[in-house]
Design a binder for these strands. Structure first.
Lengths: 351, 351
DNA sequence: CACCGTGATTGAAACGTGTCAATAGCGATC
DNA sequence: GATCGCTATTGACACGTTTCAATCACGGTG
C-alpha cells in the first residue's frame, strides 16, 4: 500500500520516466507498453501497467504529438453553436470520433469570417489530425490554406466543393424543394408562397429551384402559382413579420400554402398566425425545412423536409477517418437525399 | 551541412528555427518576438515578422505547451451537446474564452458516466489550463481527481459544491420555484400540479422546495393545493404522456395550473393538450423552467423561469480566468437569481 | 583608458514522448 | 563450443519550443 497522504501541491505531472523508474524498466519500454503492447513480455507489461495505475499516470499528449508529428485532435468548425441543426450534426461527428479515439475540438465561427480564420489558425497551431468544416461562404481560400498546412478536411453542407480540392458531405437541396413542392401540389394547393432568405445563400437558392420544378412539372404557371416572399434573414422574427406579406392578395389570389426555407422561419410564421387568431392547416398550410427537434413538439406538428443531420455528421467524420487511415486517399463527395416528414401543419386544400 | 536524406518521410511544417535562419537571427530571438516583443529591437522584430509572414509560420502549440507546461486550451465538459440550454451556456463560455485567447475543447458526456471519465482523462492528457464542468451527478470524486492532476475547474449548475473544493456557478433553484409558485398563486390558482422528474436530481428537488414555500406562505395546505406528478425523465415525450395524470380528479379537485420542472416537459405537455383539443391558458395554465429559445416561439408563448444562461457561461469562464491569473486564488461560489418571464400560457383562474 | 550599465542577442539546456538501431538473453542448430 | 535466430529490452536522439545565464556592442562616466 503506497501511503502518500500529503499530495504535493506543486509538481510537474508524472511522466513516462518516473513510471519507468517505478517499474524498474527503461522509458522506452513504457512507451512500448503504451503504443505496441504486443512487443513487450507479459510479465513486464503487467508490471508497467500496475505502475501506471499506481502513479495515476496519464500520457502527456503534447510530448506525444510533438514527437510523432500527429495529434489525436480533430477540429469541428461550426457556423453557430446554438443552432440546433448544427448540434445534431455535432453529435454524429462526436460519436464517430469517439469510436476512432479522436478528441473533437469544437470551434465556433459565430458566422464571422474573422473568427473562422482565427479558428483555422488555431487548428493549424494544434497540428490537428484533420477537420470537419462548415465554411462560412463559398470562398475556398481558407480551406486551401488548411490543405497547405497539411491538415486534411471534409466540408459539410457545401455541395459546391470541387472533388479534387477535398471531400464534402451535403444534402440535395433541390430534391428537398422538389419533394416539398410535390407534397403541397398533391394536396391540391395551386397558389404557394415561398418564404425565403436571399438567394445568395446557395442552399436556399437550390430549394427554390426544386420547388420551381415541382410547379412546372405539374403544369402550373410559376407566375401565378408561386409567390416569392423575401426576408433578409432566416430567423423566427422575420418569419413572424412576414405573415402579412404571405397572406396578401384577394381571396382568389391569396396563397393557400406556404413553404418556408427554414424551420425557424416556419416557427415564427406559425406564431404570427396564432397572434392573428389564425391556425395551420385550417387557414393556411405551413411547411418548413430541416426538421429541428421542436418541429415535432408543437401542435400541430410541423410538416417539414428532414435532413439526416446525425448521419451527415457521422459520415463526414467517417470520411475524415478514411482520409487519415488510407495514405493514397482520393477525395469523395457524398450527397444525401432529404425526406419529407408529414405532420399536422399541412392539409388538403378545400376550395 | 544539413544533408540527412533519411529523415522522417512525413513533411514537417516550418518551425521556429527555419524562421530564424530565414531572418538571419537565432531561434531564441524568434521566440522572443512571439512572446516578449518588447525585448527585441524594432528593426530585428520587423525582419522576423516578415519572415514569419513569408513562410506562413504558425506556432506549434505542442512544443510550446510541452516546454512551458501550460496549454492555452480549456475544457468544457457538457452533459449533452444537443440541449439548447447548454449551447447557450457554451456561447457565453466561448465568448469569454476568445477574449482571454484560450481555445475551448468541447467535450460531451452524453449523460454517461463512462464518457465523463474518458473526457476528463483526455483533458488531463492535454494538460489543459483549466475546465468548466457540468458534473453528471453529485459525486465529486471525478473533480477531485482533476484537482489532483493540477487542473483547476469551475463547476456549473451545481450549487452543492463545497467552496473549499472549487469554484461554482449556479442558479438559485429554490428562488425560481418560489417565484413560479407566487406567480401562479397570485393569479388565483389554488390547485397546482408540479410535473417533475425524480427528486434525486438536485435542481428539481430545490424547485419543488421553493414551490412548497410559496404554497405555505400563502396559507394554503400543501396536501390539497399541490399535486405531484412524477415522470422518469425530463423530456417532451414524458410531458406529453403526463397530461392525463395532471388533469386527473373531479372538477372540484382538478389542478387549474401546472408547473413543469423543465421547458421540455412543458412543451410536451402543451402538445398533449393540443392533441386533446385543449388549450393553455383557457383550460389550464402552464409554466415551464429554463426559458429555452422555443419558449418564445410557440403560440401562446410559454411563461417560464428564465436562467441567465449566457451570463452563467461567461462568469464561469471569468472565474476560471481569475483562477489562472491570480496565484493565491481562493475559490468562489456565485449564485444567480432566476427571473420569471411572463408570456401567454398562464392566466388568472376563473372559478 | 578603464569601467560600468544597459539593452539586444545568442547558445544551450530542458520539457515528455516516440523511434530505431543496438544489445542482451537464450534456446536451438550446426 | 561456436553460431544463428529470435524476442525483449535498452539508450540515445529528435521533435519545436521556452527559458535563462552568458555574451556582445556601445555609449557614457570617472
Amino acid at each position: 500500500m503506497p501511503d502518500t497522504p500529503s499530495t504535493t501541491p506543486i509538481r510537474r505531472s508524472v511522466g513516462i520516466t518516473e513510471v519507468a523508474r517505478h517499474a524498474g524498466v527503461s522509458p522506452g519500454t513504457v512507451s512500448n507498453v503504451l503504443n505496441r503492447p504486443e512487443r513487450v513480455a507479459r510479465e513486464t507489461r503487467e508490471r508497467v501497467e500496475s505502475a501506471i495505475r499506481e502513479l495515476d499516470y496519464v500520457r502527456n499528449s503534447s510530448g506525444s504529438s510533438l514527437r510523432s508529428g500527429r495529434s489525436d485532435c480533430v477540429g469541428l468548425l461550426v457556423l453557430d453553436v446554438t443552432n440546433p441543426y448544427f448540434t445534431e450534426v455535432a453529435r454524429g461527428i462526436e460519436d464517430e470520433a469517439v469510436e476512432a479515439g479522436l478528441a473533437v475540438l469544437l470551434l465556433n465561427s459565430a458566422e464571422q469570417h474573422s473568427r473562422q480564420e482565427r479558428n483555422l489558425r488555431l487548428l493549424a497551431g494544434q497540428r490537428a489530425a484533420g477537420a470537419v468544416v462548415m465554411p462560412i461562404d463559398d470562398d475556398l481560400s481558407d480551406l486551401r490554406w488548411l490543405s497547405k498546412q497539411g491538415i486534411p478536411w471534409v466540408a459539410l453542407d457545401r455541395g459546391d466543393v470541387p472533388v479534387e480540392e477535398g471531400c464534402s458531405v451535403s444534402v440535395d437541396n433541390e430534391a428537398g424543394g422538389l419533394a416539398a413542392g410535390r407534397h403541397l401540389i398533391g394536396l391540391g394547393h395551386e397558389r404557394i408562397a415561398f418564404l425565403t432568405g436571399p438567394f445568395s445563400i446557395d442552399q436556399v437558392h437550390r430549394r427554390h429551384q426544386g420547388l420551381l420544378q415541382a410547379v412546372t412539372e405539374a403544369g402550373l404557371d410559376p407566375e401565378t402559382a408561386l409567390n416569392l416572399v423575401h426576408v433578409p434573414q432566416l430567423n423566427p422574427e422575420q418569419g413572424e413579420k412576414a405573415v402579412d406579406a404571405v397572406l396578401a392578395g384577394g381571396p382568389r389570389q391569396r396563397s393557400t400554402a406556404v413553404f418556408c426555407a427554414n424551420d425557424q422561419l416556419a416557427l415564427g410564421f406559425l406564431k404570427g398566425l396564432g397572434r392573428r387568431g389564425l391556425h395551420a392547416p385550417d387557414d393556411i398550410s405551413v411547411m418548413g425545412y430541416d426538421d429541428i427537434d421542436v418541429a415535432a413538439l408543437i401542435h400541430p406538428g410541423l410538416t417539414t423536409v428532414a435532413q439526416p443531420k446525425y448521419r451527415l455528421g457521422r459520415t463526414a467524420m467517417g470520411l475524415l477517418r478514411e482520409h487519415l487511415d488510407t495514405p493514397d486517399h482520393r477525395h469523395e463527395r457524398r450527397l444525401f437525399t432529404p425526406e419529407i416528414v408529414l405532420r399536422g401543419s399541412t392539409a388538403a386544400h378545400r376550395p
